[in-house]
Amino acid sequence: MAPPSSPPLPPSSVFFTICLLHSVVATTCGALMMFYLNELSVFGHGPETAKMLQGSTPHDQLLIQISDSFAGLLLFAVGFLLFMVSFVKDRDFQSFFAKGCIILHIFMALWRIYFERRLEDLARDWPRQLVGDIVLSLSWLFFLVYSWREKYD
Results as ranks from 00 to 15, higher is better:
Ala2Glu: 11
Pro3Arg: 09
Ser5Phe: 10
Pro7Asp: 10
Pro7Phe: 10
Pro8Trp: 06
Pro8Asn: 07
Pro8Gln: 08
Pro10Lys: 07
Pro11Gln: 09
Pro11Phe: 07
Pro11Arg: 06
Ser12Gln: 02
Phe15Tyr: 07
Phe15Leu: 04
Phe16Gly: 01
His22Arg: 04
His22Trp: 05
Ser23Tyr: 03
Val24Lys: 08
Thr27Ser: 08
Cys29Thr: 08
Met34Ala: 06
Tyr36Thr: 10
Tyr36Ala: 15
Leu37Val: 10
Asn38Glu: 09
Leu40Tyr: 08
Val42Cys: 03
Phe43Trp: 12
Gly44Ser: 14
Gly44Ile: 06
Gly44Arg: 06
His45Lys: 03
His45Glu: 03
His45Phe: 15
Gly46Cys: 11
Pro47Cys: 06
Pro47Thr: 05
Ala50His: 05
Leu53Ile: 09
Leu53Gln: 08
Leu53Ala: 04
Gly55Lys: 05
Thr57Asp: 08
Pro58Ser: 13
Pro58Cys: 09
Asp60Asn: 09
Gln61Ala: 09
Gln61Lys: 15
Leu62Phe: 12
Ile64Lys: 02
Ile64His: 01
Ala71Glu: 02
Ala71Thr: 07
Gly72Lys: 02
Leu74Arg: 12
Leu74Phe: 09
Leu75Gly: 00
Phe76Glu: 02
Ala77Tyr: 07
Ala77Lys: 03
Val78Leu: 10
Val78Ser: 03
Gly79Thr: 04
Gly79Lys: 00
Leu81His: 07
Leu82Gly: 00
Leu82Gln: 00
Leu82Met: 04
Leu82Thr: 00
Val85Leu: 02
Ser86Arg: 02
Val88Ile: 08
Val88Asp: 01
Val88Ser: 01
Lys89Asp: 06
Lys89Met: 07
Lys89Tyr: 00
Asp90Lys: 02
Asp90Gly: 03
Asp90Ile: 10
Asp90Cys: 13
Arg91Met: 07
Arg91Leu: 04
Asp92Trp: 04
Phe93Leu: 06
Gln94Glu: 09
Ser95Val: 05
Phe96Gln: 06
Phe97Leu: 02
Phe97Val: 01
Cys101Pro: 00
Leu104Phe: 15
Ile106Asn: 10
Ile106Val: 15
Leu110Asp: 06
Leu110Phe: 13
Arg112Gly: 10
Ile113Asp: 03
Tyr114Asp: 09
Tyr114Ser: 12
Phe115Gln: 06
Phe115Gly: 02
Arg118Gly: 11
Arg118Lys: 15
Leu119Ala: 07
Asp121Ala: 14
Asp121Cys: 11
Leu122Asp: 07
Leu122Asn: 02
Asp125Ser: 14
Asp125Val: 05
Asp125Tyr: 11
Pro127Asp: 15
Arg128Tyr: 14
Leu130Trp: 09
Val131Ile: 13
Gly132Glu: 14
Val135Lys: 02
Leu136Met: 12
Leu138Met: 15
Ser139Met: 15
Leu141Glu: 09
Leu141Val: 09
Leu141Thr: 07
Phe143Leu: 09
Phe143Ala: 01
Val145Thr: 13
Tyr146Cys: 06
Tyr146Thr: 11
Tyr146Phe: 12
Trp148Ser: 13
Arg149Asp: 10
Arg149Thr: 15
Lys151Gly: 03
Tyr152Met: 13
Asp153Ala: 11
